[in-house]
């Protein structure tokens, strides 16, 4: 494997966004790119990352290799990379370590780290192709704000999506709160758009602790997409350049 990223920033942010949700995971490398799928310890949420080969310049991977990595350790190594550094990830065929090289853009500084790999026996789940009943795209910063505000009211949020908009409702001991985003197009700045497409109304409840955790990915993308169908996990997607993505799935809270 040899994969070179123009800016370490992307990889730093991706790892930062998932490291509190999952601790040990395999980065599955093959000729289509670097993928990762992992559940959190309590098996409530799942993270699915894809960094396509096109994200790297260049990308080369001759054989399928899983790189089992402790994300806490990876975070320590990535701290040494500045956001604008060129990052190269390298690995041998049957590796004990993954090699990370950071090169300063304008300087003659080259940092090189070897990170020990671990054997991780990870369950791989089949995520069914789903035609979601409702899809809502919104500014990622707005979603983060809504989740953190409502977490102060309750540990759960009910998300209701209709043609009129998407509503987040929390009911807690101190009272209730709700936020509605209406569909709108900002002609000056499409990053501000709220776009809703719906085949049938949905209403589902989720843990805000997990949703606020997903929002650590906010810096990766201006917009976030929520995909919902009744009685299936919510998908929260941060789309990245070159068809890469960071997706989180969250199992709903259901009636007792």
């Amino acid at each position: 494997l040899e994969a070179r990223l123009e800016a370490a920033d992307l990889f730093k942010k991706v790892v930062e966004a998932i490291k509190d949700l999952v601790q040990h995971c395999n980065f599955d490398c093959n000729d289509s790119g670097i993928a990762l799928q992992a559940m959190d310890n309590s098996h409530v949420a799942l993270v699915s990352m894809m960094l396509t080969a096109d994200t790297f310049t260049p990308f080369r991977c001759d054989r399928n290799i899983p790189l089992g990595i402790d994300l806490t350790s990876l975070t320590k190594v990535l701290r040494a990379a500045q956001s604008s550094d060129i990052l190269t990830i390298k690995s041998e065929d049957a590796p004990d370590v993954v090699n990370l090289v950071f090169e300063g853009k304008d300087q003659d500084r080259i940092s090189e780290y070897d990170l020990k790999l671990m054997d991780i026996d990870q369950e791989h789940l089949g995520i069914p192709d789903t035609e979601y009943a409702a899809t809502a795209s919104m500014p990622a910063a707005d979603f983060k704000r809504i989740c953190s505000d409502l977490l102060l009211i309750s540990e759960a949020v009910s998300i209701e999506c209709t043609k009129e908009g998407i509503t987040f409702k929390a009911e807690g001991d101190i009272g209730n709160g709700s936020v509605t985003l209406r569909q709108h197009s900002d002609l000056e700045n499409s990053d501000k758009n709220v776009d809703i497409s719906l085949t049938e109304p949905v209403a589902l409840s989720f843990s805000l602790k997990y949703l606020t955790g997903f929002c650590k990915a906010t810096g990766l993308s201006n917009q976030v997409r929520l995909c919902l169908s009744n009685d299936v996990p919510l998908m929260v997607e941060y789309a990245l350049a070159n068809n890469s993505y960071l997706r989180f799935y969250l199992a709903p809270k259901i009636g007792d």
Binding site: L46, L125, G126, P128
Partner: peptide, 14 residues
């Protein structure tokens, strides 16, 4: 009253 469901009850092991 609601309870948290698990992700594995929706996504099968492959």
């Amino acid at each position: 009253k609601t309870k948290q469901s698990g992700i594995t009850s929706f996504f099968g092991k492959s």
